[in-house]
Amino acid sequence: MQDSQKEPRLVVETGLDLRVAEIIEPTLDAMDFRLVRVRLLNQNGLTLQIMCERNDGTMTVQDCEAVSTAVSPVLDVDDPIDKAYHLEVSSPGIDRPMVRKSDFVRWSGHLVKCETSVLLDGRKRFRGKIVETDENGFTLERDQPAYGEEARVTIPYSALAEGKLILTDDLIRDALRADKLAKAQAANQNGEDDE
């Protein structure tokens, strides 16, 4: 697998959201964070939501503060948004958007809902468990196929318009386990660096 930090996103923004992403991504890369998503929302006046994570999938409150402190001046210089806005930096959360091939590999075995940009099997919306991934796409085992539909559907990454994990007890358990493991590995790494 390629360096996950440099792995391109399958789902990218358009318009002003894309412009903001292009402005902040070099700063995030330099800090060893991966951009997940940028959204300009009409909430609380105007809110610029930046969702990102470390390469190991973790994101602490301190990480959010560090990213916010780093991207604010970059956005002030480029000034892509011509109105006052609130900056909100967050982790992708447990029921995260699926934006890279590695997301589908990492969360294989979990429920996802997704939308495609083209019709597949006569539809664009799918929901099911990720049962297989390869370089070109992923296969879902549908949890409630309609009469006459195949239980499995393979979705090419090139057709993916949007994807998101569905919150389940299994997902919460696995996400907490992965977070605990990542924190232990980071603590071990820091301990080795101190020696």
Score class of each variant (00 low, 15 high):
A159P: 05
I50E: 01
V67L: 06
F33C: 00
E150H: 08
G128R: 07
V71I: 14
W107S: 01
R123N: 03
A184G: 09
G148R: 08
E132L: 02
I155C: 06
K113D: 04
S102T: 15
D78L: 03
V99A: 09
K183S: 09
L40G: 03
V67M: 07
E132H: 04
V74G: 00
I24Q: 00
C52Y: 04
T60W: 03
S158I: 15
E149S: 03
V36M: 05
E132R: 08
D194R: 06
E141Q: 08
S117T: 13
L111C: 02
I50K: 06
I81V: 12
C64A: 14
D194I: 06
E162L: 08
R34E: 01
A178C: 14
V105E: 11
I81E: 01
V74A: 10
A21C: 04
Y85V: 12
H110T: 05
D103P: 11
L167D: 11
Q5I: 12
R127D: 01
S108W: 05
Q189M: 13
P73L: 13
Q49G: 01
L48G: 12
D17N: 13
R37M: 08
A84K: 08
G137T: 14
Y157C: 15
K180Y: 10
A175M: 15
A21H: 05
I50S: 02
K101H: 13
D29R: 03
T14S: 12
E195G: 11
E53T: 13
V67K: 09
L176E: 15
E7N: 04
P92F: 08
S72P: 07
A84R: 12
T60S: 15
P92G: 11
N190I: 06
L46F: 00
N44V: 14
E88S: 11
L120I: 15
R142N: 04
A151H: 00
E65K: 08
Q49S: 06
D3E: 11
S4C: 05
D179N: 13
Q144R: 10
Q43I: 15
S117H: 06
